[in-house]
């Protein structure tokens, strides 16, 4: 993990309330898929944890939803402004367990970390199938970006206004070797009920520090207490007992 000052190069609206920020100046240290950063947002006290959507050539890509004070301030920031970022936090996804037919399942703003994961899997010559879940068609983002990587993308909307209708769990391929997921808690739990294949789930929790010091984000697991920020945010389903 590193503390660094990054410069905003781009901050644009992707879907209602959902923004993509690109920041330059990331040092070449490894930022792994499934890890997150803690952003110091001017005018707020605690840092904001945001998952890494992409990290390539010193450019960090973050996708976030403007829902609270901090993310609303972020949404108003412009190219050229700088942010104090702690990078490389958390464990990230374990790519070695992908098998031959991994499926990536994302719900809403849980989708971004799967982009970097898909990219790295493809780099390792594993082609993932990607299931992206949204409530409605106007919420859809990054369908084309996943497709451009070479992944097979299926969009699922709750109301059927685009792609397949229903829940992502109803569209899981039968032959998957493993799943990687990030999204709302009910979706993650439903996934574990829908398949008995190995899975890695990225959890969200309100955090204090983001690097293991304050114990603010601890959860109970089958292996005892774990910090979502340090031992997570990605957990094997068995560890969660799901």
């Amino acid at each position: 993990m590193t503390q660094t000052i990054l410069t905003i190069t781009d901050n644009c609206l992707l879907a209602p309330g959902v923004f993509r920020m690109r920041l330059a100046g990331l040092r070449p240290e490894e930022v792994k898929p499934g890890q997150f950063v803690e952003v110091r947002v001017p005018g707020t006290f605690l840092r904001r944890p945001i998952s890494v959507c992409d990290a390539e050539d010193g450019v960090l890509t973050l996708i976030y939803k403007a829902v609270g004070d901090g993310t609303r301030i972020l949404a108003g920031m412009r190219p050229g402004e700088t942010l104090d970022v702690l990078a490389g936090l958390g464990n990230g996804y374990d790519l070695t367990r992908a098998g031959t037919a991994p499926v990536l399942v994302g719900g809403g703003v849980g989708i971004p970390p799967l982009y970097y994961l898909a990219k790295e899997l493809l780099r390792a010559e594993v082609t993932p199938r990607v299931l992206l879940g949204f409530n409605r068609s106007d919420e859809i983002f990054y369908e084309d970006e996943f497709a451009a990587l070479g992944a097979a993308v299926t969009v699922v909307t709750l109301d059927g206004s685009a792609g397949e209708k229903g829940f992502v769990t109803e569209h899981l391929p039968a032959d998957l070797t493993c799943f990687y997921a990030c999204g709302p808690l009910p979706m993650l739990k439903a996934l574990c009920r829908a398949t008995d294949r190995p899975g890695q789930l990225s959890l969200e929790e309100r955090m204090g520090c983001g690097f293991g010091a304050c114990m603010g984000c601890s959860i109970q697991t089958a292996e005892g207490p774990k910090r979502v920020c340090k031992e997570g945010p990605v957990f094997e389903r068995e560890v969660l007992g799901w």
Binding site: F45, R206, M215
Partner: peptide, 23 residues
Amino acid sequence: RFGNPTPRIAECPGGMLNAVGLQ
């Protein structure tokens, strides 16, 4: 001790609240 359930952290101007509970 596991401590308290989450959320354990809240924010306020100039500070924060914690209720970790001696984990």
